[in-house]
Amino acid sequence: MSWFRRIAIGGFAVLLWGLGLAGAADAAPALWVVKGANSEIYLFGTLHALEPGAQWRTPAYDAAYARATTVWFEADLQGGDPQTVGRILARYGVDPTRRLSEKLPPDQVQALGRQVDLARIDHLRPWAAAMMLSMQPMLSRGASVEAGADLTMTRAARGAAKTVRTFETLEDQARLFAGLSEPVELRYLSDVIRERGAPRRLTLHPGEGSLEQAWLAGDMGRLGPRLIGDMRAENPDFYEALLKRRNLAWADALTRELADPGVELVNVGALHMVGPDGLPALMAARGFTVERVQ
C-alpha cells in the first residue's frame, strides 16, 4: 500500500495515517515524551481507523493518559456527524463547473470507470474522489473510524472530564485539501487510480505484512522513512501542505504549552511522527529532550 492510500484511512479529521520513527522500544505503537523544565508532553501516533477489538492500549500509554490533564487530537471527530461532513464536502469537495472526467486524461477516465461508477463521483474535486476511493478497500474489510484510536480516546477523555483540545477543525482539514493546486490534486487522484489497479503489497487487514499489524508491533523503522521519502519525492507540494506546514504549526503550539507546568498527551496520525519534519524531531530541534518510551 502506497502513501497516498494511507492518508485517507478516515476522511476529513480522520484524514491522516502514518508510521513512526525507527527503533521500537517494545512491540507496541510508538509513543514519545517531550520534556520541558516543569512539563511533559507525550506524543502518540494513531491509526484513525481500526477493526473493532484491536488491542493497542498498553500500560505505558495508559500511564501517560492517566497523568495527562489535557488530551490533544487533530480535530473534533465527535463533531463529524454525517450532516456536518456533508456540508463541508459540498463546500470544498464539489466542482459545480467542471466534471472530474474532463480533468483526467482519457486512459485514467477509463481506468477510473473500471473501479467505480463514474457518474456517482464525476461532480467531485480530484482530492475528494481520491480520498473516497482510498477509503473504500480499507473500510470494506471492517475497519472503522469509530474503532480508531482517535475517536476511542476522544470519548474516553471527555468521559473522564479531561480537557480536550484540537489543533484543527474539520473545515480546516477540508480547506487544506481544497487549497491544493489542481495539478497536485490530479496527481493525488492519478496515484490512487494507479495503485488501486496494482497488486497490494500492504493492506489494512490484520495479518502478516498488514498496515495495522506493523502499527501494533511498532515496526516503524522499516516502513516509516520510506513512506515519507515516497511522498516527498512523488508529490512534494502535497507533502508540504499535508505534513510539513501543519507539523510546524503544531510544534509551535506545543512549544507554548511546555512553558507551563503540567502533563499533556497528543494523539495525532502517526505519519506526523515520521522523519525530520515529524513532531519528535521538530521538538528536539527546539531544544527539548525527546525520548521514545514505547
Rank of each mutant, 00 (worst) to 15 (best):
V33N: 00
A90F: 13
G45A: 02
K35L: 07
I88F: 06
G45T: 05
V34G: 09
V34F: 07
W72P: 04
L47I: 03
A68T: 06
A64K: 11
K35R: 15
A30R: 09
E40I: 03
D76T: 14
E74M: 08
L21H: 08
A68W: 09
A27Q: 08
F44Y: 11
Q55T: 12
V34Y: 12
G93F: 08
G80V: 01
L89H: 04
D95N: 15
T46S: 06
R87I: 04
Q55G: 10
D26Q: 12
A60V: 13
A63T: 15
A90M: 15
V71E: 09
A28T: 10
Y61M: 15
T97E: 07
Y65D: 03
L31K: 00
A66V: 01
L89M: 13
Y92M: 11
Y42S: 13
T84Y: 10
A30M: 11
T69S: 14
W72D: 05
G80A: 15
Y42T: 02
A49T: 13
A49Y: 06
I88S: 04
D26C: 01
A75Q: 06
L50P: 00
P52H: 05
L50F: 12
T70H: 10
R67D: 05
Y92N: 06
G80Q: 15
F73S: 11
N38V: 08
Y61K: 08
R67H: 01
A30Y: 01
L31D: 10
V71Q: 00
A30D: 11
E51H: 03
V71F: 03
A25H: 03
L50C: 03
L43K: 00
A28Q: 14
Y65N: 07
A28I: 04
Q78K: 05
P96E: 04
I88A: 10
V94N: 07
A66C: 05
A28R: 09
E51Y: 04
R98E: 10
W32D: 04
E74G: 07
A28K: 09
R98Q: 13
D95E: 03
Q78D: 15
G53P: 11
A68E: 05
P82L: 05
A90N: 14
W56D: 01
Q78E: 15
K35A: 08
G53L: 05
L21F: 00
E40L: 09
A75Y: 06
W72R: 00
L21G: 06
A25W: 01
